[in-house]
Design a binder for these strands. Structure first.
Length: 292
DNA sequence: CTCCAGGATAAAC
DNA sequence: GTTTATCATGGA
């Protein structure tokens, strides 16, 4: 389905779009991003990307983006993955009964195309943590070292800001041992100069990109897959954490296996749609109390 | 009090 | 190459 938009006063309206096509709550709260929070008004979220604040509201059959057309075309259209046909993706994934149920639990999830550096730092911060705490750590990091953009909002810190920062300052985001990872990775990325680049990684493909990302401090198998998927480098990544491992073991593999096994299994089974499948399964597992 | 959280790392085997 | 203890913090 092609998403239509119209320009209104100070906003863009995504028309004929119900929550089964794009559910902002499920999209913002499924653990792929950490910079969106509910506004005081109902069904609204505010968030920051590319140094811009945006307010999004969802109604029965349309979504309102409070931005001008220029920012919509340059930033948000790509950010919200609006040119990707999710009907086709879901159709292709519904082939088995398990995926069908997983998709039905959150059909309106979209995978955001987030900024590369922010995604890398965010998922370095995620290791052995939980979504609520990661969100708090990232918010504190932005307040400490990000550019203020008005109304108490802050842009995500630049590579320079994080690499030049004193480790004591970074520690104030309370991410614990991960603060050292953030600092060293920011330094490594600064030294990589232009080669830490999304377009280059898209060109390089999954395997090579993953190898390179895993040289960063705090980036192992799972975090690398998250960066590749959630920064929009490749949808063939299948980030495998404890939740995905549990649900894959219970519903598909039917025995206890290793994380590496599940990761490869998912990539083989779902191919270029592995990343989408993973998100539906992750949401399904977390909301249906999949036992260990 | 202990256990665990969208894991990664270095050290030991 | 494959296991294991450790890492900082906060919530249950």
């Amino acid at each position: 389905m092609k998403i239509k938009y119209v320009i209104s006063d100070d906003c863009i309206i995504l028309e004929n779009l119900n929550p089964d096509d794009f559910n902002i709550k499920d999209t913002f709260e499924c653990g792929q991003c950490f910079r969106w929070e509910k506004t005081d008004r109902q069904d609204g979220y505010s968030g920051i990307a590319h140094g811009k604040k945006l307010i999004v509201q969802q109604n029965e059959d349309y979504i309102t983006l409070h931005c001008n057309e220029k920012d919509f075309l340059h930033i948000w259209q790509y950010y919200f993955d609006l040119d990707t046909d999710y009907d086709e993706i879901k159709e292709r994934l519904r082939k088995d009964d398990i995926m069908n149920k997983a998709i039905c639990s959150a059909p309106g999830i979209r995978i955001l195309n987030q900024e590369l550096f922010e995604t890398a730092v965010s998922f370095i911060t995620s290791s052995n943590s939980n979504i609520k705490r990661i969100t708090r750590n990232i918010k504190d990091l932005c307040t400490l070292l990000g550019q203020p953009i008005g109304d108490g909002y802050y842009a995500f810190p630049t590579v320079e800001a994080l690499s030049n920062a004193d480790i004591c300052t970074i520690n104030q985001c309370r991410a614990g041992f991960r603060c050292d990872y953030i600092h060293s990775s920011a330094n490594m990325i600064k030294n990589m100069s232009d080669s830490f680049n999304k377009e280059r990684y898209i060109e390089m493909g999954y395997e090579e990109t993953k190898k390179e990302l895993m040289r960063l401090k705090g980036v192992g198998n799972k975090v690398a897959d998250c960066i590749i998927l959630f920064a929009g480098i490749s949808s063939s990544a299948f980030p495998t954490d404890v939740w995905v491992k549990r649900i894959m073991q219970n519903l598909y593999i039917k025995k206890e296996v290793t994380l590496d096994y599940v990761s490869k299994y998912g990539r083989d089974k779902f191919g270029d749609l592995a990343g989408y499948a993973q998100q539906y399964l992750f949401h399904y597992a977390r909301n249906n109390a999949v036992h260990k």
